[in-house]
Design a protein around this nucleic acid. Structure first.
Lengths: 299, 299
DNA sequence: AAAATGTTTATTGTAGATAAAAAACAAAAT
DNA sequence: ATTTTGTTTTTTATCTACAATAAACATTTT
């Protein structure tokens, strides 16, 4: 097999799920644009829908004959991109208890375990290496550097520098910038979540990511944006993993966010810097506490 | 061909060049360690040296029979690693005049031009993408973002944040740390260069890299270290390219470095921050001036 | 004429194969 | 007992091939 047609299958599922009986479908280029794929793929989707008797297709005439059922869709295992499969599998592996820092990573073994070729694993590792969790010695193996205390501190330091910069830039945005409206919307979402915190505290991580992403976008700096990818990945997998005291932790973070938002809206640079520092300090503590504890960690 | 034996050839050249007639050579593991290769490769080198009649080799007895000549060595085209070849070729391409931002990058075309397989080019592009000069749309082509004004400004902003941080850390190093001795040595090298500036101004870029690398190492932060790789690459290829007013520019930078070094040695954090800012401000100007000027650039 | 469809071509993503290089294992020499 | 050499195994780096996808070109329809 040279390549799985996951793009086709995933887009097919998305499009089929949105079909309504008796409606007429738009032109091929329009469908392609809606789905974010090429027209070739859009045509492949139409072809299959037609073959399955879901639509009648004759040139410009495209009518939905029946609502597709779950059995018409591809199973979810077949729609995940190889990159996502490798990422999930790899992250699970390095977050597992027996993954000690210093461990060697074997490309061929990983590939066999995931059921894929070595090329894809290699490319994944190269891409992943910029997050600072693995390292390669040329002509030799990759080494797992791991979620260590050093990693967390280095990450937190850079995050602090970048976010202080971005927050200051945010404070300088002209008042008619879209970002201010987005910020107000996020503030309302915070308040709504706070009102029902016992039920909804688990959804905080999504809100957290949205909030910090909005701030970082103000910096318009590709290096800051890229670094935020690393943070997002770490937090995404880490939050799934460490759930102790999540309610208290998240409630406190919401309050800090609200203070931070108020400072941004005030436009007072000193207040912004202060609120940003307060929040990042406690975010740092949260990250450190979530690390696998070793005997020597008594800070 | 699966793989070129450039590691072997390059190490062979290095080892052969250092041989002296009638000396006895050390053990295989020691040779391997000296050259930074595996024992397998070290043995391959000994085998060839023996076949060429350059040494007599019998188990532990290894005697140099004759001095190798230039004709014994592999030509330099055969000793460059594929990665370096691709990097050079690619950088030349994107620094060329006709490389406009927004241009598409074609993997197959690049591979053919360099005379290599597509996999190597792909892997290079993935690695290179972290420098922010190219970007990929999934399932589609890479796009050259290019050495634009935005790139230079974003790079300079992050550099400033990182170096201010590193310089402050440097100032806090205990006085018995090796870094202080290294700094003193670099200061002397600056003074020596200044004494013969008309002859030696072209060597400044090497000194510049050494100086900033020393400072960044004080931060002990992998993200800062990685970012400095990006800066080093950009400056390496950029300095080769823009040579206008190099003497004046470099002389001024040397003076700024000396002030900066003095501030570090004083241990006064305010003085350090100030000297660092002054130098980075002029480094930013230098970088901006070296950009290909377009009509709209009138800042 | 502009937009849609039909058809062909170019390019990317991934698997599999293989030589180079590293690493592991075994035997011999100090 | 430790180091060195001899031999075998494992792993990486790279090429080639090919299906999926995108993109380009040609024809038809409005």
């Amino acid at each position: 097999m040279a390549r799985q047609n996951t793009v086709f299958k995933e887009a097919y599922n998305r499009y089929a799920a949105a079909l309504r009986t008796d409606t007429a479908l738009p032109s091929e280029p329009e469908i392609a644009a809606q789905l974010g794929v090429s027209r070739s793929t859009a045509r492949a989707i139409l072809t299959r829908l037609s073959e399955e008797g879901i639509i009648r297709w004759n040139k410009r005439q495209k009518t939905v004959l029946r609502q597709p059922t779950d059995r018409d869709l591809f199973p979810s295992e077949e729609t995940d991109s190889l990159h996502d499969i490798i990422e999930r599998s790899f992250m699970q592996r390095i977050l597992a208890d027996d993954a000690a820092p210093g461990m060697q990573i074997n490309e061929l073994e990983l590939a066999r375990e995931i059921g894929t070729g070595t090329t894809s694993v290699r490319e994944f590792l190269i891409r992943f290496s910029r997050f600072g969790l693995i390292e390669k010695r040329p002509n030799s193996h990759w080494t797992l550097k791991g979620f260590t205390r050093e990693f967390a501190l280095e990450l937190a330091d850079v995050r602090e520098m970048f976010e202080l910069h971005s927050a200051a830039e945010f404070g300088r945005l002209p008042k008619d910038n879209q970002a201010w409206a987005d910020l107000a919307a996020i503030r309302d979402d915070h308040l709504a979540m706070l009102g029902d915190i016992n039920q909804r505290f688990r959804d905080f991580s999504v809100l957290d990511e949205r909030f910090h992403l909005l701030i970082h976008r103000a910096s318009k700096n590709r290096f800051i944006a890229d670094f935020y990818d690393a943070i997002a990945i770490v937090f995404h997998y880490h939050y799934q993993w460490n759930k102790t005291a999540a309610r208290e932790r998240n409630e406190r973070a919401i309050h800090e966010h609200l203070d931070y938002i108020a400072a941004l809206e005030s436009g007072d640079q000193a207040a912004i810097e202060n609120a940003c520092r307060v929040h990042l300090h406690s975010a740092r503590q949260t990250l450190l506490q979530s690390l696998p504890q070793t005997v020597s960690d008594n800070a």
